[in-house]
Design a protein around this nucleic acid. Structure first.
Lengths: 318, 318
DNA sequence: TATCCTTACGGAATTCGTAAGCATG
DNA sequence: CATGCTTACGAATTCCGTAAGGATA
């Protein structure tokens, strides 16, 4: 039994039981992977994978249990490295952030700049993706802290905390009739060609839900993954845009675009920060979280991380 | 980083930072231990142990954190082995029980016999010791299930459940005046030379507490760790005995000893069963627990094991 | 036939023991 | 000076790569 074998099993599962892929991912030879897994199975006296001839088909029942233990072990190995970093290199290390475009573009610049000022020796790495990608990057130890509006709250193995609430805004060309309507209605919005986020992003599900509930079928002309693209096409007159308020917060008024908050139509959205359960968080990770939102404190995060997996969030949700 | 190094660190801590002892315990050379720990410290970039010259003095602050992760890793490695046993050898394996003399002598024979009948291929190992020893054996993975009346409830890292309640009985020679007293008083008991358990055992603390509360100083002539010894000296007329009720339950009445329940003097005691938190329990471990007490079920134990460390026990206490 | 896992094999690196060195109490 | 950790070194083992073999879809 050794850590290499554990890593092989873990990565093989992540690569859909394809050992060739696993070998590439781990920068080693494929026979080595095969041998390692075989040896572990031999030592435990149990098949971790069910094989069809020479091909790996699925994870066996004991394999599931083995995998659980392996995941815990690899998590703690990652923690050991972080502990080493935390204490050896004072205020230095690498912080990997997983996030969506919206946050990376409109929310993170400020806290990131502050963190760089306070911890100049911390190397920041940003990973961009869908909210689902964010969750996966945390689970796979690719990122240490994740930020997204959706899909994080209910992922097992993650600890999430609310960061702040935001609402959608309707973006129209400056001289569009809707620019002068204070509280646009769903019907008014639906009458226009719509440009908004791709379904996997930034509260798009809220938009769909609101229209569905009112039994209105909006005419979505274009789906983008970021607000810059949406605004560009609104400028071109292709329709009206629905974006997160962060995307227009810093735009000067009186430009070629106007916007109206439409939280009353699509409800509030919550940006959440997420960590992998059981992760050892270095002090600059806490510091970064505190920079993200007034609502986040080290004590609060530590309490949330200690919470029992099954139990439901309590006070810190308020 | 490898599992050997983790084992070295763990064992070194258990052996009070004496690497020579550690090497003996792990059946390897002392320089090997030294090298392994040094390499791990080198790789993590952190001192786990603070040294005075060449002698290990204490655990450093990062060392504490490292130790926590190491303990989790070693626990999961133990679990992996158990998972292997569970699925490879059907209904076979080794079950280590840590317990006190009282339970081993009077309580376990019946459930052990039943377990042997149901799982003939399970090898049973019994480890006897004080309640404190029982707790330690669980923590050190020497035993998988522990039984004791005291000292288990508040040990961090252990999950305990109540098994059943018992009371003390007063044991006297058959023709002793107290043999015919229905509810002896503390004063009556204290008037005789007392023979009872050693302070670390079987509810002795309850006895001391009751006398202390009544401001009576009993005359304890002899302290034994088991009821057989106590009964032997009562027969010799050296005094009256206080033992757990289990110790006389199977004695035929009309012999040379008589006894009276004295729960009204010393209160009820609770026998508890304990497991190491996070341990993987094989099915015959659950089966054994269920044989121990009607109150224990697999579902109940699983719920208790999943409970958050900090939170206090709930329904299954009742 | 293309993909993919297992077995075979040999050079290189690692491991682990003994022996020696050196610091503490 | 007795105990106890670290360093040195060499034999044995393990590791890990390439090449070949065999099974599936």
């Amino acid at each position: 039994m050794n850590l290499h074998q554990f890593r092989f099993v873990q990565e093989a599962v992540r690569r859909d039981l394809n050992l060739t892929e696993t070998a590439k991912a781990l920068h080693t030879s494929q026979p080595g992977i095969s041998k390692g897994i075989l040896e572990l199975e031999e030592e435990l006296g149990v098949d971790i994978f069910a094989r069809h001839g020479k091909r790996l088909r699925r994870i066996t029942e004991p394999g599931q249990l083995v995998l659980q233990s392996v995941e815990i072990i690899m998590r703690e190995v990652a923690n050991l490295r972080r502990i080493g970093e935390e204490f050896s290199k004072q205020d230095a290390g690498t912080l990997s952030i997983a996030t969506t475009h919206s946050q990376a573009r409109y929310v993170l610049p400020e806290p990131v700049a502050q963190l760089r000022r306070r911890f100049p020796k911390v190397q920041l790495v940003m990973h961009q993706g869908t909210p689902g990608d964010v969750a996966r990057m945390l689970a796979d130890d690719v990122a240490e802290i994740g930020l997204a509006t959706e899909a994080l709250a209910d992922v097992p193995g993650l600890v999430t905390l609310p960061c702040y609430e935001w609402q959608h805004v309707l973006v129209v060309p400056a001289h569009h009739p809707l620019a002068s309507v204070d509280r646009p209605t769903l019907e008014q919005v639906a009458a226009e060609p719509l440009i908004t986020y791709h379904p996997t992003f930034s509260g798009r599900s809220r938009i769909d839900a609101a229209f569905a509930k009112a039994r209105i079928k909006p005419n979505v002309t274009l789906e983008a993954i970021d607000a810059d693209v949406i605004k560009t096409y609104v400028r071109l007159g292709m329709g009206v845009g629905l974006v997160a308020e962060m995307a227009v917060r810093d735009d000067p008024p009186g430009g070629d675009l106007a916007w109206r908050p439409v939280g009353h139509l699509f409800g509030p959205n919550t940006l959440r920060v997420a960590f992998k359960r059981g992760a050892y968080l270095r002090h600059f990770v806490f510091a970064f979280a505190e920079l993200l939102s007034e609502r986040l404190t080290r004590a609060l995060i530590e309490r949330a991380m200690a919470e029992r997996p099954g139990s439901h969030p309590t006070s810190y949700e308020l």
